[in-house]
Simulated scan of single mutants.
Amino acid sequence: MTLDISIIPSANPKSDEQVAEILANPGFGTYFTDHMFTVEWTPEKGWHDARITAYGPLTLDPATAVLHYAQETFEGMKAYRHDDGSVWTFRPFENAERMKRSSHRLALPVLEPEDFVQAVEALVEVDQRWIAEAGSEKSLYIRPFMIATEAFLGVRPSQHVTFMVIASPAGAYFKGGIKPLTLWLTEEYTRAGRGGMGAAKTGGNYASSLVAQQEAIAQGCDQVVFLDVAEGKYVEELGGMNMYFVYADGHVVTPETGTILEGITRSAIIELTEKAGHKVEERKISIDEWREGVASGEITEVFACGTAAVVTPVGTLKWKGGEVQGSTETGPLTAQIRQSLVDLQYGRAADEFGWMHRVI
């Protein structure tokens, strides 16, 4: 750990009563902890002035580069309270390595994984009272992000960059609880092509998905499905989740990476599924294979995954002029994988993979 972090406690933290009230029903991404972490970078000084201060608004010059050229990356991860009161994160070095890859793609400086994890842990330790007690599936959602903060309108990599970490107590991602999603297939919009930013966790990818998500909601659906840009026939991912398809013979298929986000939960599920005795293929899967497979019964379960949503079953797929109805309940393998994952994250099962990282 190389960051020299100063800590300036908030002068106006939430009371214990206020925190308890929030933790009773935190929602997702609505409330934020008392503090935030910040460190800055310039070519001359490298990463410097690491600090934890009171959570609050940022002051940015109107010419700040990120506002004009979207040079930014971010991560999403969680901290979990175990029965003994300890606090753990899930595969934090994987998040750190992915941010390195994203930063390279966005021409941002690299924050070394050890420093990334140190920053996350420092904030979690300071704001640990915001993590709900064990016994539920509540957690502390952690959002590290890096933005170009030079005030300059030229089109080049920023010469001043700021990395921050904020945190938000989290309940269920979907308000309706765990039930099969209805998905909308967009045939007009795509998310990323070969050589693009699809594998980088950057805001532009999510911004480009929002108009298609609007389309999905207008059609009465929960999420949108994107196809590949080259041929418009292969399933890539949802607006914010990776996908899995379970076949009648027990094998599982997930779309290959390259133009999609290399999900931390996605790769964990591959290992959990293989450990459960199911062969997992990472390959192209066409939208026709999905539709025909569900209709014929060859595909028995479909589910999506991500840090926020964990594992969520998929029921119906809709598109202009048609739909195919999958299961109206959570499938057995979907339920098994989800339970295996959350049991590991909350310390109810042995961590055979070495994924959990103790913070407190």
Rank of each mutant, 00 (worst) to 15 (best):
K78S: 00
G85T: 13
L60Y: 07
L123Q: 05
D83F: 10
V117K: 08
V120N: 11
A79Q: 03
H82E: 07
R105A: 14
T59W: 12
D127V: 01
P62K: 05
L108Q: 03
P113E: 09
Y80F: 13
L111Q: 02
M99Y: 09
A70T: 04
V66I: 10
F116E: 03
L140R: 04
D83I: 14
E97W: 13
V87T: 14
M77H: 09
N95C: 00
E72F: 03
A65D: 05
M99C: 14
H68K: 03
L111W: 02
L60D: 05
T73P: 01
M77I: 11
D115E: 15
E114G: 09
A132R: 04
I131M: 08
F74E: 00
A107W: 11
V126K: 08
W130C: 06
F74M: 08
L140D: 03
E114A: 15
H82P: 01
V117A: 08
L123A: 12
M77V: 05
R101D: 06
E72Q: 12
E121A: 15
T59C: 11
P57D: 04
D115F: 10
K138E: 04
P62I: 07
Q128M: 12
L67F: 04
L58V: 09
L67K: 05
L123P: 12
A96Q: 01
G85K: 14
T89L: 13
R129V: 08
L111G: 02
A122D: 11
Y80Q: 00
P62A: 06
H82N: 08
D84Q: 14
S103D: 13
K78W: 08
V110S: 05
T73Y: 00
L67E: 01
L67A: 04
S136G: 15
R98N: 03
L67C: 03
A119K: 05
A119Y: 01
E137T: 15
L58C: 14
E75S: 13
P113A: 12
A65R: 06
P57L: 00
Q71C: 08
L108T: 01
I131K: 01
V66C: 12
H104L: 14
W88K: 03
Y69H: 06
Q118G: 01
P113L: 13
E133T: 06
V117L: 10
S103T: 10
A79H: 05
S136Q: 15
H68F: 01
S139R: 07
R81W: 12
Q128L: 14
A79R: 00
E121S: 13
T59I: 10
V126S: 08
L67V: 01
L67T: 03
E125F: 02
T73L: 10
P92V: 02
S86C: 11
P113T: 09
L108V: 03
R91M: 04
A96Y: 01
F74P: 02
R91K: 09
A65L: 15
L106E: 05
P109A: 11
E72C: 02
V87A: 13
D84K: 08
E114M: 08
A134K: 05
V126R: 10
M99S: 07
A119E: 00
E114F: 13
M77D: 09
F74D: 04
P92L: 05
V110D: 04
Q128A: 15
S136N: 15
R129W: 12
T64S: 08
N95D: 03
E75Y: 11
T89G: 06
V126P: 01
L67I: 04
G76N: 07
V126W: 08
V124K: 03
A134M: 08
V110E: 03
I131L: 11
F116L: 07
E97C: 07
K138S: 07
